[in-house]
């Protein structure tokens, strides 16, 4: 089971790295989400894969039975998913804003933050794409 997990994590990571190499930001974001999933699976594997009994305390008991799965990795993953969701949502918002305000989602077409070299040396970035943002 562990080796199956390792292979799955490896494939996900490879796919994520491939997406990171893309030229446009939405793909990079998808890469981030995939890498996040890979890391979550890693945490699950780190907590030892064994029992698949849900870690729920039955109504008439006061503690988990020994057969239950390790609840800690699940709690960690839940937290990580929520945080990853927040980060991805914010990054997506920023990409949408970038499309609307800068007219592009390609990092190489963005020169705005280049400060004191930009105004004279470089042409205004990609005005042709601006119209679909209006």
């Amino acid at each position: 089971m562990e080796s199956l997990f390792a292979i799955a994590i490896g494939i996900l990571t490879a796919a994520a790295v491939y997406m990171f190499l893309a030229r446009d930001l939405p793909r990079v974001l998808i890469g981030f989400i995939m890498l996040g999933t890979a890391v979550n699976m890693l945490i699950l594997a780190a907590g030892r894969i064994g029992s698949i009994v849900p870690a729920l305390v039955a109504g008439n008991e006061s503690a988990l039975t020994a057969a239950a799965a390790n609840p800690l990795p699940q709690a960690l993953i839940l937290t990580a998913i929520v945080i990853g969701f927040g980060l991805a949502a914010f990054a997506l918002m920023l990409i949408v804003k970038s499309q609307r305000i800068l007219g592009t989602v390609m990092p190489e077409e963005m020169q705005e933050a280049e400060g004191d070299v930009a105004p004279q040396a470089l042409p205004a970035p990609a005005p042709a794409r601006r119209k679909d943002a209006a």
């Binding site: 945080i83 914010f90 804003k97 305000i101 800068l102 400060g115």
Partner: peptide
Amino acid sequence: REQIDGGLRYVALNLVGTL
């Protein structure tokens, strides 16, 4: 405009850093 650009650069590296 420059904040959106700078923000994207900041976000991109920090997202990977957190992972």
